[in-house]
Write a protein that binds this DNA or RNA. Sequence first.
DNA 1: CATTGTCAAGAGCACTGCTCTCGAATCTGT
DNA 2: ACAGATTCGAGAGCAGTGCTCTTGACAATG
Lengths: 228, 228
Amino acid sequence: MNAGRTARERARAELTEEIKAAARRQLATVGAEALSLRAISRELGMVSSALYRYFASRDELLTALIIDAYDALGDAAEAAAGGDDVLEEWLAIYAAVRDWARAHPQEYALIYGSPISGYKAPQTTVQPAARVPILLLDLLQRAQAAGRLTPPADAPTPTGLLAEQTKVLVELAPQLSPTVLVRMMIVWTQLFGMLSFELFGQLVGSMDPADEFFTSAARQMAAFVGLS
Amino acid sequence: MNAGRTARERARAELTEEIKAAARRQLATVGAEALSLRAISRELGMVSSALYRYFASRDELLTALIIDAYDALGDAAEAAAGGDDVLEEWLAIYAAVRDWARAHPQEYALIYGSPISGYKAPQTTVQPAARVPILLLDLLQRAQAAGRLTPPADAPTPTGLLAEQTKVLVELAPQLSPTVLVRMMIVWTQLFGMLSFELFGQLVGSMDPADEFFTSAARQMAAFVGLS
DNA sequence: CATTGTCAAGAGCACTGCTCTCGAATCTGT
DNA sequence: ACAGATTCGAGAGCAGTGCTCTTGACAATG
């Protein structure tokens, strides 16, 4: 599979991956903010300045790690999708997202935690970031087609700016009503609020360990968005 | 109000506050991780080592800032509480929390963002952290006493570990049912997931600006927990 | 007045991201 | 196969960081 590439190109690609692997390893222990290029270079037995041949700056390395993290989460979620029952599938995606987050807390923090000081996320990160929400929107569309999506009658229809904003989401899921889309955003933010609280230690003393709380929330949020 | 204290004690207390103020000022621009003791000392016209007379370490300064942030948020929320209508009060607390968070994004990130690498929050932070949830639980109790709290009939009653965990919360709000308490935790995590998404730029492209989305979520979460 | 405790200052250690230069290795066009 | 262009790792160096230790000045206490 490396045919047609020069030895330099292969070496470069391999070393680039090794750098990212070492960075992820260090990330897991010291966190994103404390990620040190010099420590990475030490681990790889090279000199720190040599790293700059592969990543022009620390920020560029972080961007690569962020995209990889979004993709890893997207892969995990997509692997859990596609069962025969939409509700089971919903719960499976929830569980997959949580499992990935708990297995890679620092990578989770990298993408859903506080922004890294002085770091500005480039546009390249938005597409991989959208994979999981798109997955859930697709699930809801299939549920609706199967007659399994019935939002409560008392759910308010968005008006004004909110109605305007749902139009962006409608492009991703044309069949869903604005009501469901806004509820989906509420559910979406709930999921990551819950995960952040669990991973960042905010639930200690109340809902920790959060296994049962998490599945209960997953079920109740499914009902909230109209999934049955 | 400074009576009975020696000149040294007064000077020390004032300088301690000045250090925290400078730290907050720097926090607002560079973020918590990049907070530099030397930069603070430069701003105050003193030498960096002198700061260690007031805060034994960077972590100790951070702890002081974290407690101050929790208290500031608690003050803001409590100031918004206590209207005559419980639903209006609920919305007012939501708005106050959001306003404070948007006015102090870095302090928000300090307490609800990713944990700071190498920093372990001491036990002293949990009490100020509980002020806002206690405020909301109290509101729900008053609503229930006024017959304004009627959780939907299809809300599941927690079982197993989840039922066990609600007992901790029952001590804070003895009149509320486990069903409502779990829903309150879901709502609680939704609030901060939504805030984190807004402040950390995760809503850009969909629900940003989030004013209407936020108030819609506040209303729907009130209904979700049974408040009417 | 003398002692005791507190304070700011400064030097120093080990670390960081990043830049620059300098040879050596590798690739490319002839 | 060879010359020229490109890429690469190494090393020195800059400005910054948190933190420690020592020194000398000041204020509070007896």
